Amino acid sequence: MNDGQPAYGLWVLVVLNSTIFIMFAYSFFKPATARDWRTFGAFSAFIVALFVEMYGFPLTIYLLSGWLQTNYPGLDILSHESGHLWSTLFGEQGDPHFGFLHIASYILLAAGFILLSSAWRVLYHAQRSKTLATSGPYARIRHPQYVAFVMILLGFLLQWPTLLTLLMFPILLVMYGRLALTEEADMRALFGQAYERYASVTPRFIPRLSRPDETLN
């Protein structure tokens, strides 16, 4: 699992990776309101915290170094592979990039960005036409963009857990939940009974398996 080579202090990679993922998410989310920017800002803070520990300064590894060296005496805590803590804790052998959790993280990341892109296209056209977004992912859940962000965050946590991002994750879940409720109140004020009918047949976060039969528009 360990190659014996230090893999930190690479601040160029911190900046490069953070910028790529934040701009990629921005291109789909397109924050416009103050609420949008708060949501996107929290996501960006998570991404920066993640890559700082992945390539810059491994705070979690240092804080747990005593425990790790006691329980895993052959572990080189300064190698990049050791940062994949789930692989260490579950006793996985070989390259952690090919482990079950790492592969699952790639699936979650890809699915999250695909869902984010799909939801943004539907929402963009709905906003331009001043209509309620009820097609595509919105036909199955009311807040596909928030679900997409959570999938992306969870994907990163499966790949590279840190104490800070593990602490931030439930906070972000609560934040997205509250933003979803605020957004629903705005939609009810704007679309009235049309939104009530939509919300009555469309789950908030857990996707429905079949499309609703009711006419929503």
Results as ranks from 00 to 15, higher is better:
Met1Lys: 13
Asn2Trp: 05
Asp3Phe: 05
Pro6Gln: 09
Pro6Leu: 15
Pro6Asn: 09
Leu13Val: 05
Leu13Gln: 07
Val14Lys: 07
Val15Phe: 13
Val15Pro: 02
Leu16Gln: 13
Asn17Lys: 06
Thr19Ala: 11
Phe21Asp: 00
Phe21Ile: 02
Phe21Gln: 03
Phe24Pro: 02
Tyr26Ala: 11
Ser27Lys: 04
Ser27His: 08
Arg35Ser: 06
Gly41Ala: 15
Ala42Trp: 05
Ser44Asp: 10
Ser44Phe: 06
Val48Asp: 03
Ala49Glu: 11
Ala49Ile: 11
Ala49Ser: 13
Glu53Trp: 12
Gly56Arg: 12
Pro58Phe: 11
Leu59Arg: 07
Ile61Arg: 07
Ser65Pro: 00
Leu68Thr: 03
Asp76Phe: 09
Ile77Lys: 06
Glu81His: 14
Glu81Pro: 00
Glu81Ser: 07
Gly83Tyr: 10
Gly83His: 15
His84Lys: 04
Leu85Phe: 15
Trp86Asn: 04
Thr88Ser: 08
Thr88Ile: 14
Thr88His: 10
Thr88Asp: 10
Leu89Arg: 15
Glu92Gln: 06
Gln93Gly: 13
Pro96Val: 08
His102Trp: 01
Ile103Cys: 14
Leu109Asn: 00
Ala110Glu: 04
Gly112Ser: 01
Ile114Asp: 02
Ile114Pro: 01
Ile114His: 07
Leu116Ile: 03
Ser118Ala: 13
Ser118Ile: 05
Ser118Val: 13
Ala119Pro: 01
Trp120Arg: 14
Arg121Met: 14
His125Asp: 14
Ala126Asn: 04
Gln127Leu: 08
Gln127Tyr: 08
Leu132Tyr: 03
Gly136Met: 12
Pro137Leu: 10
Ala139Asp: 05
Tyr146Leu: 06
Val147Lys: 03
Ala148Arg: 01
Met151Val: 00
Met151Ser: 04
Met151Gln: 07
Leu153Pro: 02
Phe156Ile: 00
Leu158Ile: 02
Pro161Leu: 15
Leu164Asp: 01
Thr165Trp: 00
Leu172Thr: 06
Leu172Gly: 07
Tyr176Val: 03
Tyr176Met: 14
Gly177Met: 13
Thr182Gly: 15
Ala185Trp: 01
Gln193Leu: 11
Gln193Tyr: 11
Ala194Thr: 15
Glu196Cys: 06
Arg204Met: 12
Arg211Pro: 05
Thr215Gln: 05
